[in-house]
Simulated assay, not measured.
Amino acid sequence: MSSISSRAARPHSEDSSVGELLSVVTSDVQTLFRQEVELAKVEVKQEATKAGKAAGMYGGAGFAGYMVLLFLSLAAVLGLANVMDGGWAALIVTAVWAVIAGVLYQRGRTQMRTVAPKPDRTVETMKENAQWARHPTR
């Protein structure tokens, strides 16, 4: 920021050549790009920190949900064991969980195929910015 503000405070003389002025503009654009990248890094770091905390909370909720399902499954096995052999009751509850796991796996796999590995819009705007920086008068 200091390089831009110090140049802005210096008036350009009327006899400055177009090349010198273009050099100043190019330098300012490069500085602006660097500062934008720095700002993006800071913003990404802040958002990653918030996301990490939220992920920790989701992890805790997931573990609590796992414990609920574990004890609910145990209760189902014990309830079925009142009307049939305990081994068969456990096998039935296990089969239900196997079907649920298969369905969730398939849905997750289908959804994962739609994920784009790179930020397409950002890449496109950065290309446009670079093209403008090379040819600012177009």
Rank of each mutant, 00 (worst) to 15 (best):
L104C: 04
M84Q: 04
E14W: 10
I100A: 15
Q46W: 07
R107S: 11
L72N: 07
E43C: 05
K50Q: 11
A95N: 00
G52T: 01
P117A: 05
A48Q: 05
K50Y: 01
E128M: 10
V18S: 10
S16T: 03
L39E: 15
F33K: 11
V93K: 02
R113V: 03
A40D: 08
A40H: 02
E20L: 03
A89C: 01
G86S: 14
A61S: 05
Q111G: 12
R7H: 08
D120K: 10
G59L: 01
T26H: 14
G60H: 09
V29T: 05
A98Y: 00
K118Y: 08
A101M: 06
L32P: 06
M112C: 08
A76C: 07
S23C: 15
P119M: 04
D120P: 07
V25K: 08
D120G: 11
K50H: 01
V42N: 10
S6C: 14
G65W: 02
P117Y: 01
G62V: 00
Q106F: 15
W88Y: 12
R10N: 14
V123N: 10
F71P: 05
P11V: 02
F71G: 06
R138P: 10
P119Y: 04
L91D: 14
E47S: 08
G60Q: 03
V93D: 00
R121I: 15
T122A: 13
A130W: 04
A101T: 11
Q30V: 09
V37S: 12
P11K: 05
I4F: 13
A116M: 05
G52H: 00
D28C: 13
L70F: 09
M57T: 06
S3W: 09
H12P: 11
L72V: 05
T137K: 07
R7M: 12
V44Y: 06
L80H: 00
G60W: 04
G87F: 14
F71I: 08
A90D: 03
E128D: 07
E124F: 13
H12G: 15
